[in-house]
Design a protein around this nucleic acid. Sequence first.
DNA 1: GTCTATAATGGGATAGAC
DNA 2: GTCTATCCCATTATAGAC
Lengths: 191, 191
Amino acid sequence: MNTRTALLDSAERAARQRGYDGFSYADLASDIGIRKASIHHHFPKKADLARELIDRYATRFADQLSEIAAAEPNAAAKLRAYHGLYRDALGAGTQLCLCVAFSAGRDSLTEPVLDQLNTFHARSTAWLSLVFEEGAVDGSVANLTDAADDARATLALMEGAQLLARAAVDLSLFDQATAAFLCRLSPSQMH
Amino acid sequence: MNTRTALLDSAERAARQRGYDGFSYADLASDIGIRKASIHHHFPKKADLARELIDRYATRFADQLSEIAAAEPNAAAKLRAYHGLYRDALGAGTQLCLCVAFSAGRDSLTEPVLDQLNTFHARSTAWLSLVFEEGAVDGSVANLTDAADDARATLALMEGAQLLARAAVDLSLFDQATAAFLCRLSPSQMH
DNA sequence: GTCTATAATGGGATAGAC
DNA sequence: GTCTATCCCATTATAGAC
């Protein structure tokens, strides 16, 4: 694998576990086995690395949302899959979604990174809004209010549930915090 | 005011705006007008300061919950007041509740501080559980599931909504994310 | 593209005078 | 209780050889 990708992978793992301020070029260097000065050849400033990190993450997440939209038959199934993304991102309860990790440390981020972060939130909200509108039509989601509000509430719930679970390093807290949300979704049909 | 309290106040403001790693003794020193070496007289290590910070915060929060429990007539009113605490804590959209700020940067925290953080979460959840059980009796809260799950979901929603609002420095995002939650609460009576 | 070497800065922390 | 002075270390970043 090329060094650049190895660096991005290492940095993403580190950022999601310890936050943006919680990892240094020295950490990445010892992780992938080069000297820290060499990293500056690929990412001159740490802000450049952060930028690429969030870009790559946003792209990957958007692709996953597209796949879900294409693969799942109704709104409830799409929301279950969305919930699964956030649950999987927790790993063993030690890491967060990159965008939660970055939201938390937002004061050390540069403008372009912050912009990407808010774009990520906006896109997620837009995608969820469409799903909730679909839910109003197909009847697979209970207790609907306003689609945009439901979307923001869902995003907030996932991010908050990750925070709770990670604070205690206990995945079951994520499940408890999101249990009521899953209850609103009609069960998938048998084949 | 005594120096010790001034330091705690300054540190709390800083931590809620920039996180635990985001402020230094130098920041506090210039903020309250002493030299940074003097701070070590009051708090030998930064971890000591963090400990006192979270202790004080947890105590204050518990008192507020007691007041709410005593003052509000039913479950819906108590939850509205609880929601108000988190909304107020956001200020102009630039700061978080201390415990969200600490949850985010958890990897630089020491064991006693982490313990206090989880105790805080546990107490909040316990208080909310009782309120949701009251709601099941007085009928003032809609769409109830399991009281403990509803409690964790509520805590996660508040923390996540704060994160969303702070990322964009936009209080209205908190309101949108929590709008559906408020809708579940029956309106207060006229007098 | 990676290395050694070296800034330059800022962090937490301590000793000892006043 | 606060000060000056200092230490030690980690961090981001750069220069220039290979």
